[in-house]
Simulated scan of single mutants.
Amino acid sequence: MNKAFILDLDGTLLDSMGAWQNVGIKYLIKKGFTNIPPNLPSILKPLTILESANYIKTEWQIDLPQQTIADEINELMAQFYQNEVELKAGVRAFFERHKEHKMCIATATDRHLVKHALKRVGLEDRFEFIITSTEMGNSKRQPDIFIEAAKKLSSKIEDAIVFEDALHAIISATSAGFYTVGVYDESFKHETEQIKKVANEFFYDLSDWRL
């Protein structure tokens, strides 16, 4: 039986984590704030966009609805996804090698941004579906998104492979019984050794992975 692939987007397929790391800072600067801690990117990194918006709203006492803040952050990212984002090295070769497998995107990024990105890199028709943390109602710190993705792929958990760059997501997927492949990303380089210990496999370039 062919394995089903559940793929993260940012940092796994797309070279986009640098943009996400800076978007919270860019948003606050745009709002006129200067008291921005340097560790803000690491605080926001594991959060969904709505959780990030709530954190920013609370910490900086911004008098806007949480959803409005999330929408404004997404708008900053939309320009990047439409005009600048690129695939990471080895990703096209990975897709060429595994054409026969069912695949989906499971991501913390909101759906309309995912569609912009996939259209730009020419992969809008490659996946069975997209599933997002916002739609699931929680982050990848819980395995719900992976379990739901496997269900929608008509795959048992043991027959699905999760590809991720983030330690918290790999821990979550592994805890639910998924086979996990860790993918290196510069933004998570400080977690590389931990990821190697938790994931079933780890690669610096997806084109090196073989089933």
Rank of each mutant, 00 (worst) to 15 (best):
L153Y: 05
I69N: 08
K196L: 02
L47K: 14
E84L: 08
G18H: 13
I49H: 03
H101Q: 14
V91C: 03
V183R: 12
Y81R: 08
H168C: 00
Q79D: 14
D205S: 04
A53G: 13
L50F: 10
K196A: 05
G24L: 01
Y179G: 03
E75L: 14
Q21M: 07
K152F: 02
K115T: 15
V181E: 08
G11C: 09
H112L: 06
L153I: 04
F146T: 06
P143E: 05
D110H: 08
G122Q: 07
F94L: 13
L206C: 01
D63R: 10
S42E: 14
Q79A: 07
K156Y: 05
L76S: 08
D10M: 09
E135P: 00
K152M: 15
G137L: 03
F5Q: 04
Y204A: 11
H190S: 10
K151W: 04
I69Y: 00
K152Y: 01
I145P: 03
E59Y: 08
I161P: 07
T192L: 11
E193V: 02
A70P: 05
K88E: 10
I49N: 03
S154H: 10
E201Q: 14
S139K: 11
F146M: 07
V198T: 11
Y204T: 09
E72C: 03
Y184G: 12
A149T: 05
E148M: 11
I56L: 15
E59N: 15
K189A: 14
M136R: 08
